[in-house]
Design a protein around this nucleic acid. Structure first.
Lengths: 179, 179, 179, 179
DNA sequence: AATGAATGAGCATTCATTCAT
DNA sequence: AATGAATGAATGCTCATTCAT
């Protein structure tokens, strides 16, 4: 039941945007009583947080085991392709304009999300730091490996959102930057 | 009157977030009648679009004349600093969690915004293409100057949102990438 | 419109008790839109307070001018009869089990009510203190005229609530006590 | 189990008011299943009635044996002091704004309550009627001993609700009235 | 152009009660 | 007897929009 509700919430979010999620609609589409939702999610806010997290999990379904290369650039390609593959489950994903939390839920939701994404970033940073192909003098006190990974991750997400089918331009940028 | 309404809308948006904009509140704070707003903005949606555009304009208040250097990197620094300066008018800007449009308004609003930002990007691209310090083989069929500018712009905005007080890490990235 | 709503609220309160007041029912019975109520009463709580106060006012519609006797006992009779007369407007008054405010509204509502009732009590106390028929040694440090008036008022209300058609027993008690 | 539920209901009623009693909360605080309550109390209404009666019983825990004086006034003092002592178990008693029943339960609940209180009143009336210190001509066809006891009882309750620590003013009133 | 009262669909949330296990 | 998930009517409140004046 928990999953039924959550999946319906995800479905609605993806098809019509987060703002169109409302408890009545979910109940109706799940063919359950309105009150039943509250047995599993104490408030709409909680359901929203669970929904967003679940969508992110679906899309960023990468476990550390998957990073099978010691070459930074290969991992980026792997991530891009995995995400794109995962996104096939979400053909309407891009009407989902904003996966960010609103002000109230920011504190509750943001934290667990950041931890989740951070694991990937830390892993990437480790690989980058041990990548022997990186040329000298690429990093300094301002542009650290951590910040560089942040930047690349940021651009990667943009590519995804822009529905690019490859990340070759980003790869070229990385090559220019560090190899 | 148009401006009175628009400015109040901006004020509310910046202080409390886009979602807290509502017609009644604006009318009340402007000391005008609720119905009067509709003489200037046919719907809330239109007011929202105008509000967001105006905020962006305030923040990206760069006219092409301002780009006084032929060095790409100098223009980036100039943009970063100008935006940061403009932002001093908006001390609560960052409670404005999302400046994006919702589903309905997406089509209406996104377009004019893109045109606006595009002017800056085109200008930057021109400068980049004529920057003689750029090393060879930096661009290819995937990573074009246009796309590169997109990327840098993207990262620039991130720095702003993250309240960074300088863009030295981004400059270093650019140097690594193209000089 | 304000009065339409208030009167309907009073009607419902008197016929079915305070707890059966709800915004939808009032709107429906008034043949107006639910939202319209909120143009006049910002919240149910405010409507409730206004309702209770208005009922009390209707029932205790005594102005100081009406106290035309210098004899304490005559005023008590006058008050009893006036209230009973006013109550004819409220044949179902006694299903209104409790006219007290709930915890939340207590502070807001109780104050103005107390001021209202207090005026009558102060007036009665004045008359009592100047009533020359009162025998000696009736009051002491514990039983002051103010407290005595409180007591008598209290019993008067009980008589009203018990639908007594006269207050002769109370008069006898007063006579025993002070004359 | 019956008592566990009843006591929890009393606890909640006294700490937060009758209106905050709800079946879920009681079940949770008793660490039993929601449905189990219904094995002992067929409806919330029944639980409410039992709760109110039990609170009254706790407070008016006077058995006839306790009336050990033949002097009416001594019994009043005894009742006042006993009630005040019993109330020490209920430090938050006075947030319990109304111990009366709502419309539906009125008929069911009021009756048994009245019988309970009536026993005390009858007893007091007996004592009053046999109190040889009572002066002549105190009672007549309107003010009977029964009604007088009603009055005094009424005022006694008021003193309790007003958190008075003694009933000396009431005693003085009684002395004035009948001795 | 200006006004602002009226509208009413829409929303989150509560909670007594039922009933299959 | 005990359980607790499921129910769904009920409720207070919001707010974009309309329209007669």
């Amino acid at each position: 039941m928990y999953d039924t509700i959550l999946n319906m919430s995800k479905k609605i979010a993806i098809e019509n945007g987060l703002n169109s999620i409302n408890m009545r609609l979910i109940a109706k589409n799940c063919d359950i009583a309105l009150g039943s939702i509250y047995n599993y999610f104490p408030s709409k806010s909680d359901l929203l947080i669970a929904t967003i997290q679940s969508i992110w999990q679906d899309i960023f379904n990468l476990n550390s085991n998957s990073f099978n290369s010691e070459i930074f650039i290969d991992n980026i390609i792997y991530i891009f392709e995995t995400i794109n593959k995962n996104l096939q489950k979400y053909p309407d994903f891009f009407t989902l304009h904003s996966l960010s939390f609103n002000n109230e839920n920011k504190h509750k939701g943001k934290k667990s999300m950041d931890i989740f994404l951070n694991n990937i970033k830390v892993h990437l940073t480790n690989i980058l730091e041990n990548d022997k192909n990186v040329r000298n003098n690429v990093f300094n006190e301002y542009l650290t490996p951590t910040i560089f990974v942040d930047y690349i991750f940021n651009l990667l997400i943009s590519l995804i959102f822009d529905k690019k089918d490859n990340c070759k331009s980003l790869i070229k940028l990385i090559e220019n930057s560090i190899y």
